[in-house]
Simulated scan of single mutants.
Amino acid sequence: MPRLPAELEEVLARYVRGPRLVREAVDGAGPEVTSRAGSGGWSVRDVLVHLADAELVRAGRLRFILAAEEPPALPGFDEGVWKRRLQYLWRSPEAALALYDALVYSNAELLRQFAAEAFERRALIDSEPVTVAELLRRGAAHGEEHAAQLRALREELGDRGGS
């Protein structure tokens, strides 16, 4: 029977909470969703599309690692390049949030099927070794960090969720 390593149970719970935290952070967002603020120049929409794209990459990476006989070499990605070349300016924030939510659910469902040793399987991402466990930890932190970023961005833009 598959068993998630005990040290990853809370990590998986945090990972699964990510979409809810992000939804709460953007709940009631108004027209400022497309406004860019701060030196980073990211809008609420940009962050939501980035979350969906990053989770799409994580989904592929997990599957490549878990299905491979030998550790695969996987490409990295440059979020700034993706923002520019993948038309974040014109993408739907609602669709991005729905995709992020679905991918996290699917990845968590997949990971729950594996025994502890699967979490130590490795890939090389930009020539750096990364385990399945590390991808899960990064995914948990990613949702939390961007939820905080979205709250701060909305505050900076003067939006308080309709209040």
Results as ranks from 00 to 15, higher is better:
residue 1 M to P: 13
residue 2 P to M: 01
residue 4 L to G: 12
residue 5 P to Q: 04
residue 5 P to M: 03
residue 6 A to P: 10
residue 7 E to Y: 10
residue 8 L to S: 01
residue 10 E to L: 11
residue 14 R to V: 06
residue 15 Y to Q: 08
residue 16 V to A: 05
residue 18 G to S: 07
residue 19 P to E: 07
residue 21 L to P: 00
residue 24 E to T: 06
residue 25 A to V: 14
residue 28 G to T: 03
residue 28 G to P: 08
residue 29 A to G: 09
residue 29 A to Q: 05
residue 30 G to N: 11
residue 31 P to V: 05
residue 36 R to P: 08
residue 36 R to E: 13
residue 36 R to I: 10
residue 37 A to F: 09
residue 37 A to E: 10
residue 39 S to C: 09
residue 39 S to K: 14
residue 39 S to L: 13
residue 40 G to W: 12
residue 42 W to G: 01
residue 43 S to E: 14
residue 46 D to G: 01
residue 48 L to E: 02
residue 52 A to R: 03
residue 54 A to G: 12
residue 55 E to Q: 10
residue 56 L to P: 02
residue 56 L to H: 14
residue 57 V to P: 14
residue 61 R to M: 05
residue 61 R to E: 07
residue 62 L to T: 00
residue 64 F to W: 13
residue 66 L to E: 15
residue 67 A to T: 12
residue 68 A to L: 10
residue 69 E to D: 13
residue 72 P to R: 05
residue 74 L to T: 11
residue 75 P to Y: 01
residue 75 P to M: 05
residue 81 V to I: 12
residue 81 V to D: 09
residue 82 W to P: 01
residue 82 W to A: 07
residue 85 R to K: 14
residue 86 L to I: 07
residue 86 L to F: 07
residue 88 Y to L: 03
residue 90 W to Y: 06
residue 90 W to I: 04
residue 92 S to M: 01
residue 92 S to G: 06
residue 92 S to R: 13
residue 93 P to H: 13
residue 94 E to D: 04
residue 97 L to C: 00
residue 99 L to R: 12
residue 100 Y to L: 09
residue 101 D to N: 09
residue 103 L to A: 01
residue 104 V to E: 11
residue 106 S to T: 14
residue 107 N to A: 15
residue 109 E to H: 09
residue 110 L to D: 08
residue 112 R to W: 11
residue 114 F to T: 04
residue 115 A to W: 14
residue 115 A to H: 12
residue 121 R to F: 02
residue 121 R to V: 05
residue 125 I to Y: 00
residue 126 D to Q: 13
residue 130 V to E: 09
residue 130 V to H: 10
residue 133 A to T: 06
residue 133 A to M: 13
residue 134 E to D: 10
residue 137 R to S: 10
residue 140 A to I: 08
residue 141 A to N: 10
residue 143 G to K: 02
residue 143 G to T: 00
residue 145 E to C: 10
residue 145 E to I: 08
residue 147 A to F: 02
residue 147 A to E: 01
residue 150 L to S: 00
residue 152 A to C: 06
residue 158 G to A: 09
residue 159 D to T: 07
residue 160 R to W: 15
residue 161 G to I: 15
residue 163 S to L: 09
